[in-house]
């Protein structure tokens, strides 16, 4: 069963190597999403399913969407259309698709065999995390909220165009 952990680790390392060696930012983003998904599967095998879900939703979802938005905003030139059609060449999907398929097979296998902590550690569920977060680490939670607000205000201030 521990083999699931090692396969996901291999996928994570391989896709991260592909991220830092790509010349094209969109291709690197595709591989980075696969890398984050494989780390999410690793969290699942480690008995941390809540964090695995957060990794998929926030990292592979929200933060990567931010990157895609900015990348599309940066290329508003005349030849943006043909540039984009060269980026989304179907051949570029093959590598990330194969790696993601490996992760999907692992996930289906884990769900089918009912072993949601394949690495052998004890499960720490969302309940324990929530209780800890809202009791011992309440100040840290408030500070994280303030940090996110500061990030929001900072990004808005930096991103606004001067009207004068």
């Amino acid at each position: 069963m521990a083999i699931i952990f090692y396969i996901s680790s291999a996928v994570a390392v391989l896709s991260t190597v592909m991220v830092i060696t790509r010349m094209n930012a969109v291709h690197a983003l595709l591989y980075l999403i696969v890398s984050l998904l494989s780390v999410a599967v690793i969290f699942f095998t480690l008995g941390a399913p809540f964090i695995g879900a957060l990794e998929v939703i926030i990292y592979a979802g929200a933060i990567m969407v931010l990157f895609v938005f900015v990348m599309m905003m940066l290329n508003m030139g005349k030849k943006a259309a043909e540039l984009e059609s060269s980026w989304v060449n179907p051949r570029m999907y093959v590598g990330p698709a194969i790696l993601a398929a490996i992760l999907g097979i692992e996930l289906v296998y884990m769900l089918a065999s009912g072993s949601n902590r394949a690495a052998g550690f004890e499960m720490v569920g969302p309940k324990a995390v929530g209780i800890g977060l809202y009791s011992s680490y309440l100040v840290g939670l408030e500070l994280a909220g303030m940090l996110l607000l500061a990030g929001l205000v900072g990004a808005f201030h930096l991103g606004r165009r001067d009207e004068d």
Partner: peptide, 25 residues
């Protein structure tokens, strides 16, 4: 088998989100 590791990950997640928003701006 402690929840602290996952709590720290959530703080890192919040920090990464704030950092990437300002960085991309």
């Amino acid at each position: 088998a402690q929840a602290e590791g996952q709590i720290m990950f959530m703080f890192i997640l919040a920090m990464a989100a704030a950092e990437v928003a300002v960085g991309l701006a």
